[in-house]
Computed example of a mutant assay.
Amino acid sequence: MEAKVKWVDGLCFVAESASGHQVVMDGNRGEKGPSPMEMVLMSAGTCSAIDVVSILEKGRHEVRGCEVKLTSTRREEVPRLFTHINLHFIVTGKTLTEKAVERAVSLSAEKYCSVALMLGQAVEITHSHEIIIA
């Protein structure tokens, strides 16, 4: 996997993936785009959500929505590393069961989500979920 990052101005950069997608990131309190640490947090949520939706759909559960609310704590001193991240899944669907959602979240956390598993080497990561039947 490859990517490139190009300085625009100030502390604003444009990152481009090998697939050609671009993202603006800003180290200046997010004035022009998310900060790199916000991108890391959002990446963990997206990676985990992909797993949860895929696992549930493979189990023939009708998923209508999946949202991940991420909360984090960071050190006060530099480097301002994450010390804790919680991923709270809100999964909506008609045929969802507690057992199925719990299994999907656990599989993502323990086996599939590369981003969260990598971060988990240095950060305490917790998971929670709720189900909305609709």
Rank of each mutant, 00 (worst) to 15 (best):
His127Thr: 15
Ile90Gly: 11
Thr126Glu: 06
Thr73Gly: 13
Cys113Trp: 04
Val5Met: 06
Ser48Ile: 00
Gly30Ala: 07
Ala109Gln: 10
Gly30Ile: 01
Glu76Gln: 14
Glu67Thr: 15
Glu16Met: 07
Gly120Met: 06
Val123Gly: 08
Glu110Asp: 13
His127Arg: 13
Val68Pro: 00
Ser108Cys: 12
Leu81Ile: 09
Leu87Gln: 05
Glu110Lys: 10
Ala3Thr: 12
Val5Cys: 04
Ser17Ile: 12
Asn86Ala: 10
Ser19Glu: 04
Lys111Gln: 13
Pro79Gln: 07
Gln121Phe: 07
Val40Asn: 02
Ser106Arg: 05
Leu70Trp: 03
Gly10Pro: 04
Val91Ile: 12
Val101Leu: 03
Ala104Cys: 10
Arg60Leu: 15
Arg29Trp: 01
Pro36Leu: 06
Ser17Arg: 07
Ile90Trp: 05
Glu98Arg: 01
Ala18Tyr: 04
Ala49Glu: 09
Arg60Gly: 10
Ser17His: 03
Ser35Ile: 00
Gly45Leu: 02
Arg103Leu: 06
Gly20Cys: 08
Leu41Arg: 00
Glu57Asp: 14
Leu119Val: 15
Asn28Thr: 11
Thr92Asn: 09
Ser106Trp: 06
Ile132Lys: 15
Ser19Pro: 01
Lys111Asn: 08
Asp9Leu: 05
Leu119Ile: 15
Lys69Gln: 12
Leu11Asn: 06
Val115Trp: 09
His88Met: 11
Val68Leu: 05
Glu77Ala: 14
Ser108Pro: 06
Thr83Ser: 14
Val23Lys: 00
Ile132Tyr: 04
Leu117Lys: 15
Pro36His: 05
Lys99Ser: 08
Ala44Tyr: 05
Ser114His: 10
Leu70Asn: 03
Val105Glu: 01
His129Thr: 10
Cys113Glu: 06
Glu62His: 13
Val40Arg: 07
Val68Glu: 01
Leu11Ser: 12
Ile132Gly: 09
Cys66His: 06
Cys113Lys: 07
Met1Pro: 03
Glu31Met: 12
Arg60Ile: 14
Gly27His: 05
Ser54Ala: 14
Met118Ser: 15
